[in-house]
Design a protein around this nucleic acid. Structure first.
Length: 658
DNA sequence: GAGCACTGC
């Protein structure tokens, strides 16, 4: 079986490594898994662990009477690995081997190996606390430490305590910090697998640089001038830098040709980042024309999500744009920060997929040594309201006492619990209320779950569904450099003086009125993101189905937007702010000063009272996605926040759910 | 008068 299983990287590798390394340790691996409840498996890229191990376990009979779950952090991985395994086993995808991701479940009662996104398995655990159908749970790519994987760590550990001998867990990771996993699970042994990676030569700069963008440009030109053929993958932090280098590289490279360096191949820059339309993303997979060398200018999307073929050189300036959340202010910020050692290794590894490569790290070797081993796990960087709600649903009365691999800060947990209390999801004694149990069923942040349920009570569930679905997708606006004016013109007919939510609702309604076949073109004409709007349609349908199951009444408020704005206030009241004489706003909950973000339709309009979705800290604190409300609505919607705390009573909306 | 990395339910 193993001889013909490998369709990955190259033929040359088969000669190089013989067969998949995992095949050699198959029996040893199965013996260990049989012997221990939990096994830690460290496998480098290309070790075959994701495809082979589940098949070994299935053949061994260990999953008899049940199913094997294999989690992945990303949808594409779950889908593509399932497809490959079905092919190897000569079975139909969706029968013995299947996958389950949001909006797409290709599995059935007969499925024995089930690939899922980690978020999907968390959802299953929320519905069926015992995960009874699974005899084996494999947590793959555990080193990525997504929020969902971290929840699953605690869930499976707890499950094993009550389902003794009946649940095997395998934690698979690509990095060498397996000791931490072994320690957490009390796992007896850690097994290491050889990867199938070609050697990558690491080159550092002797001195630090002033501008990393400039340094990337220089490095690319030097590689082009002095290194043998092979494409270059350069990491940058965002769209703006990528577009700048896309212009500069041909300019400078052209200059080199003009100065007499003839016979040189042409450098072709190819951008890749998530917001790029799919047709343009596809260009990174096309081979460079003869006599050309591709320079892929990428964000960290090329670290894990996308593997570009043909890359032999990696240029890594050592920076990444990362989001961080402050529990103190409740604000988000997006900052350019140094990468971790693990990230730098992941990046340089991209040069060794098809042959020996070189990685140019644009910093000193000492700088690398001083980098943190890994970036902070997601659980320590995000708002924890959803996590705390889910832990309560899992029956963990004191979420602070949950068995975390890395504990989030107490202040972040307390802030989240306070929010849930104010939303009415938790009662005074800290238990889930009926409203909270409804909220946990909805796959959105608790504030938006509250908007949906409040919308139902206020007679505007149709509108609330659309607005919440739109808030759960990527931005729907496309504003390319130099076309802001025409874009603003195209959006004008949809703009509402009531704010961004109702403006987006107008866009969504118009989108739906367009014939399906014409929607893509309509979006292009209106400078709107077709993908985002289409996704909003899918999410809305899923949320509507959940509301139906919860027997929540569906109604429309027609053209009167007041109920919808009140529903938004019911969820977003902690982000209520009033206008000050200097035209800034003061947050009611914390007295912080904020300004309306210039991208908002309300920018410059000075409404006296607003709510907003997100506080973004850049040079200043900006409110993004803003809606106008009446100040008189504040006290009755969230008395806990706007009256004296000692006399606060439950919000009126909560009464209906008690 | 600023600028949005990347996932996921």
């Amino acid at each position: 079986m193993l001889g013909r299983t490998d369709d990955r990287p190259t033929q040359a590798l088969a000669d190089h490594a013989g067969c998949l390394p995992i095949a050699e340790v198959r029996d040893e691996l199965l013996r260990l898994i049989k012997m221990h409840d939990t096994t830690i498996l460290v496998g480098e890229t290309g070790s075959g662990k994701s495809t082979q191990l589940p098949q070994f376990i299935l053949q061994s009979g260990m999953a008899r009477g049940g199913c094997i779950a294999v989690t992945q952090p990303r949808r594409v991985a779950a889908i593509s690995v399932a497809g490959r395994v079905a092919q190897e086993m000569h079975v139909t995808l969706g029968v013995q081997v299947g996958y389950s991701v949001r909006f797409d479940d290709t599995s059935c009662a007969r499925t024995r190996i089930r690939y899922l996104t980690d978020g999907m398995l968390v959802r299953e655990a929320l519905a069926d606390g015992d995960l009874k159908r699974y005899k084996v749970i494999i947590l793959d790519e555990a080193h990525e430490r997504t929020l969902s994987t971290d929840i699953l760590f605690g869930i499976v550990k707890r499950l094993q305590a009550c389902r003794r001998q009946d649940l095997k867990v395998v934690v698979m990771s690509a990095t060498l910090d397996a000791a931490k996993f072994a320690d957490f699970f009390g796992a007896g042994r850690v097994l290491h697998l050889l990867g199938r990676q070609y050697p990558v030569e690491l080159l550092y700069l002797p001195e630090p640089v002033d501008s990393y963008v400039d340094a990337v440009l220089k490095a690319v030109l030097q590689i082009h001038a002095h290194q043998p053929p092979g494409d270059i993958l350069a990491f940058l932090t965002g769209q703006e830098e990528i577009e700048a280098l896309q212009r500069l590289i041909p300019e400078r490279a052209g200059h080199m040709h003009a100065s007499g360096d003839s016979g040189q191949a042409t450098l072709v820059p190819v951008p890749i980042f998530a917001a790029l339309p799919p047709e343009q993303q596809a260009k990174v997979f096309e081979a460079a024309p003869p006599g050309c060398r591709k320079v892929i200018l990428a964000t960290n999307i090329a670290e894990t999500s996308i593997t570009v073929p043909g890359v032999r050189y990696v240029v890594d300036p050592g920076f990444v744009k990362a989001r961080s959340y402050s529990a103190r202010t409740g604000g988000d910020s997006l900052q350019v920060v140094p990468v971790s050692k693990a990230q730098a290794r992941q990046r340089s590894g991209r040069a060794g997929r098809e042959g020996p490569g070189k990685a140019f790290r644009l910093y000193k070797e000492e700088t690398f040594q001083a980098l943190p081993a890994a970036s902070a796990p997601e659980i320590q960087r995000v708002s924890l309201a959803l996590l705390m709600l889910q832990l309560k649903q899992l029956g963990i009365e004191q979420p602070q006492d949950f068995d975390f691999m890395d504990r989030p800060s107490t202040s972040a947990m307390l802030r989240a619990l306070e929010l849930l209390l104010a939303l009415g999801a938790l009662g005074a004694e800290g238990a889930l209320t009926p409203l909270g149990r409804h909220m946990v069923r909805l796959p959105v942040e608790p504030v938006f779950a509250k908007v949906l349920l409040a919308g139902a009570q206020l007679g505007c569930s149709q509108e609330a569904l659309s607005v919440v679905a739109l808030s759960s997708t990527d931005p729907i606006y496309i504003a390319n450099r130099g076309m802001q004016d025409s874009a603003a013109q195209a959006w004008k007919p949809f703009m509402s003086a009531l704010g961004d939510h109702i403006t987006k609702l107008n866009i969504y309604s118009s989108f739906l009125e367009v014939r399906k076949a014409d929607r893509r073109r309509w979006c292009t004409e209106h400078h709107l993101n077709f993908r985002s709007l289409k996704k909003a349609v899918d999410i809305r349908a899923q949320l509507a189905e959940h509301l139906k199951q919860l027997k929540v009444p569906m109604a429309s408020c027609g053209s009167d937007m007041a109920p919808l704005r009140q529903a938004l206030l019911s969820g977003l009241f902690i982000n209520a702010a009033v206008l000050l004489p200097d035209n800034t706003y003061r947050l009611q909950a914390s007295s912080q000063k904020v300004m309306i973000h210039p991208s908002s339709v309300l920018h410059g309009r000075k409404p006296p009272c607003i709510i907003f979705e997100e506080l973004l800290r850049t040079t200043r604190s900006y409110a993004r996605n803003v809606t106008v409300i009446e100040a008189s609505w504040l006290p009755e919607t969230a008395p806990m926040y706007f009256c004296s705390k000692s006399t606060a009573t439950a919000a009126p909306l909560r009464e209906g759910w008690q």
